[in-house]
Write a protein that binds this DNA or RNA. Structure first.
Ligand code: FES
Ligand code: FES
Lengths: 148, 148
DNA sequence: CTATACAGAACCAATGCAGTCCTATTTAGG
DNA sequence: CCTAAATAGGACTGCATTGGTTCTGTATAG
């Protein structure tokens, strides 16, 4: 229903937690108890985030995960992309041949614009922003002012 | 992966087709052949759109469906809502008790803001807009100018 | 050398989605 | 009146994705 996966939700909460103490290393177990989410699930998420180069890791005793970049340099779009893959609202938003209606479809171009707008919006929100209790809604205002 | 259901995609194409000849009534069979989508599927979509009061219908010989409102008065958000239910990016975006992390969650409020922004953005695009070959990207520009 | 902790993959159950089918009910026209 | 065309509203099913677990391997501090 046009919703992000639950795991993506968890991932943002994780990342925001890490963003609060950027230098520190957290073990998966530690984060799991802190969030109240089963440990294997947290571990899986951290692995995906690592693969997307959003995290740095150290193995062994005392090891763990830490942000690979500064909190303001990681966007919500990055996190969503790391967990769910590239953002594509419609089937046909990524490359041709994915949609059965392609021939003579009147909405493809427009959906792609909408898709792009959403991507830009999510890229504009950083972990640093998300860590604030209430998001500075600059882009929300920008939207609302322009809308009829 | 943060994508609308394929059926929703179909539905927008349907609605845009109807928006091109606002007065005319189309039968489900007619629309099905025109789009190249199986008839039962098209029928199902039309029923859902009708229930959401976006379409008007007439039964019997020569009956069919037509837009219930003018093309500029129906938004993409309306169509998405009719097919997929209320727009809720996150589990917790609609009411409490849906998310296991609620207690002490740091991102809920911010996700709801993002959710709201997306809803506003989709409400700003009407069927009349979608019917144009290339969407007038006022809101896209509005977004991009404000973003760092 | 051992306990800790990440790395990577395979695996499974459950949910939701795409798609079909069947049975009313309404209406135009002969 | 009677029939064919068309919508109204369900129930039903196969499939893909997701949420979540488990197992084996590897690196590292002490
Ligand atoms: S190409 Fe996919 S709906 Fe138009
Ligand atoms: S309440 Fe759902 S993730 Fe915060």
């Amino acid at each position: 229903m046009l919703r992000i996966a639950k795991l993506t939700d968890y991932a943002t909460v994780l990342m925001v937690r890490l963003a609060r103490e950027p230098g520190r290393y957290f073990s998966a177990a530690q984060l799991a108890v802190e969030l109240g989410v089963p440990q294997p699930t947290v571990a899986k998420l951290l692995k995906r985030l690592l693969r997307a180069h959003l995290l740095a890791s150290t193995r062994g005793v005392g090891g763990g995960y830490s942000l690979a970049l500064a909190p303001h340099a990681i966007s919500v779009a990055d996190v969503v992309g790391a967990i769910e893959g590239p953002l594509a609202l419609t089937e046909c938003a990524r490359g041709k041949g994915n949609c059965s209606l392609e021939r003579g479809c009147a909405t493809r171009a427009n959906w792609q614009l909408i898709n792009h707008a959403l991507r830009v919006a999510l890229q504009a929100v950083s972990l640093a922003d998300m860590a604030r209790p209430q998001l500075q809604p600059v882009y929300v205002q920008a939207l609302q002012e322009k809308m009829p």
